[in-house]
């Protein structure tokens, strides 16, 4: 089996006195689709936010493509990572947020183009063409000069995905991307994720409450409960054969 592209080693995270994650060990392989499920407040989002460098782990290591994300070697000793180090490692990671977080002062085309040009220093024409193709792919080719405020929630989220994809990440993180949407807009966003999962070979980590969808596209499902990975395996293993009572109880709430 290939080397994992991301490896969590005994990762802990506390907010104040509250320990949210109590020792996470996790391997994510290239092109693997991982779904993280579990009750609210179990720390699902924190797991991927640490990988995106939005939260710093309290202890433990996160290794991305062989490099320690939050620590760096300096004069032969491991020290806390500085911004330069974080930037050099997180370039391969992209993220889509629950509340879209589009830049409201830019058109949706500019939303997609700014980072590849300014951060990666890519050629403007090339980036523009790629951005338009990506926006067409998510079904918004006719809106490229609109501002985010002129779009529906589902459209905004599809722009957010195009914006992340234009950066050509090796790992894409999805943080409850349909939770803030009206029910009738959820489908269009899931369709795009399904399309990405089928046709792109990047690793994907989805934190989601869309249980059926997650089980459908995921190679691996993690059940997070009270800060630990209580269960992990293929979708069918976790859903059908798990003896974990908390998981059964959690799943039963989605089956009505």
């Amino acid at each position: 089996m290939a080397e994992p592209i991301v490896r969590y080693q005994d990762v802990h995270k506390s907010f104040g006195d509250v320990e949210v994650l109590k020792g996470i060990d996790l391997d994510i392989f290239p092109a693997e689709k991982v779904a993280i499920i579990g009750p609210s407040g179990s720390g699902k989002t924190t797991i991927i936010r640490m990988l995106m460098t939005l939260e710093e782990p309290t202890s433990g290591d996160i290794i991305v493509d062989g490099t320690n994300l939050w620590k760096m070697e300096k004069n032969g000793r491991m020290t806390e990572a500085n911004e330069k180090h974080l930037r050099s490692v997180r370039g391969d990671i992209g993220m889509v947020f629950q509340h879209f977080n589009l830049f409201p002062h830019m058109t949706i085309l500019e939303n997609c183009m700014t980072a590849p040009i300014r951060v990666k220093g890519e050629d403007k024409q090339e980036v523009e063409q790629r951005s338009i193709e990506m926006l067409e792919r998510v079904g918004l080719g006719d809106k490229i000069h609109n501002y985010p405020s002129q779009l529906s929630g589902g459209q905004k989220q599809r722009v957010a995905m195009a914006r992340a994809l234009v950066m050509r990440p090796k790992i894409m993180l999805f943080d409850e991307v349909t939770s803030a949407l009206d029910p009738e807009l959820v489908g269009e966003v899931l369709e795009v994720i399904r399309d990405i999962a089928k046709n792109d070979d990047m690793a994907m980590v989805l934190v989601t409450h869309e249980m059926d969808f997650a089980l459908d596209i995921a190679d691996k499902v993690l059940f997070l409960d009270e800060g630990v990975i209580a269960e992990q395996g293929s979708a069918s293993d976790v859903i059908e054969h798990s003896q974990n009572e908390r998981l059964q109880e959690f799943l039963s709430r989605f089956r009505g």
Partner: peptide, 13 residues
């Protein structure tokens, strides 16, 4: 969230 989205696009501070 604006700053976080910019971080996710690997922008420097």
């Amino acid at each position: 969230g604006q700053s976080e989205a910019a971080t996710a696009l690997n922008m420097s501070s």
